[in-house]
Design a protein around this nucleic acid. Structure first.
Lengths: 199, 199
DNA sequence: GTCTATACTCTGATAGAC
DNA sequence: GTCTATCAGAGTATAGAC
């Protein structure tokens, strides 16, 4: 089996990169809504105005395509969170957590497809790919480990439960989120306030 | 397309029901680990020691099989929660919530396959089936609406956020749960305590 | 009720012309 | 880079023997 290594991509606006980006967009769109294995290469190709065979010039396999979507998804969501963290560098730990959570939720709920593919379940049949996707997600979540560890809590073990609870609730929000309802920033505020305790 | 209606099942121990139950078990096992569309009828049949064609005597289609697994899953998880609620009828609202959450987590994390299939994502291509599965899940979650509404909270709107946060964190727990780690009952206690506020 | 055999469609992927 | 054409295999489902 081929290696899955993938590359920078999406930087310069050459014609080649535009086509590659179109395929990625289409794949993210389909993977988000149908899941990975229910999506066919022909559907992705059709959305990107190509024929199925043509995509193999840009991506060596369907697995490689999923990996590329994950990489781009993690990059986007991490960039959003890092930006929020840089902007709130001097704020207190609870505020910083709320800001990061808002950025996380915005990536997931508003900006859409790529981030949600990262959240959805992983394919079970390819161990190499699976390990790579998990590593990607872990590297991102490291940010929230640091944020919860910085909270002023009496029990250090408590930080872990705060993280598991907040991240779980946040990642699950895609199942009940409606654009006409609470905004990502409001959701983040509610979640953090409930944990922090003072209403 | 055929109707998907399905029936009681699994009650009496006739030979027929045993084979049907074996198919359901195998399907739940595969659906949980691989997801619905990545699972093939041949895999399910093989796990149940049959050939693929033979299953169509018991279930008219793959969709019908998924629906049956969901129905059985909701039945099991609801039975567990209802039992916990009956046993804690006189307890205070926070304790009742914690008991119900423990039962929910036990169904999901320990007892296994059926309940987790209910939690996993729904197929996007069959609207009729999709609506039926969502209705099933909603009918179950109604229990937690009542539990959170009964909590002594200053703001009634807050009950909704408590429910979304706790159920989200609980349903997400299958991604990080390890049998050698915290038990369902410990997880439930941590979650409820974090919300309740007094450490 | 289960098996054998198979119909028919769709899948991911490749080869070679342009 | 994209298309046409196609392959080999796997997918759900059915028909009919037993």
């Amino acid at each position: 089996m081929d290696t899955l290594v993938s590359e920078p991509g999406l930087g310069t606006k050459t014609r080649s990169n535009n086509r590659r980006a179109a395929i990625l967009d289409a794949a993210a769109y389909r993977f988000r809504r149908q899941g990975y294995s229910a999506t066919t290469m022909r559907e992705v190709a059709s959305d990107a105005d190509m024929l199925a065979g043509s995509m193999y010039y840009h991506f060596s396999s369907k697995d490689a395509l999923l990996l590329a979507v994950h990489q781009e998804g993690v990059r986007r969501i991490a960039d959003n969170v890092d930006h929020a963290l840089a902007a709130s560098e001097k704020a207190d730990p609870w505020t910083r957590l709320e800001m990061a959570l808002t950025a996380h939720l915005e990536s997931l709920l508003d900006r859409g497809d790529y981030a949600q593919v990262v959240i959805r379940d992983l394919p079970a049949d390819n161990d190499e790919l699976r390990a790579e996707l998990i590593a990607l997600r872990d590297s991102y979540e490291q940010r929230f480990r640091q944020l919860t560890n910085a909270l002023p809590l009496n029990d250090p073990e408590k930080a872990r439960w705060v993280r598991l609870m907040i991240m779980g609730a946040a990642n699950w929000s895609r199942t009940w989120y409606r654009p006409e309802g609470a905004t990502p920033s409001e959701i983040a505020r509610h979640f953090v306030t409930l944990i922090k305790g003072d209403t």
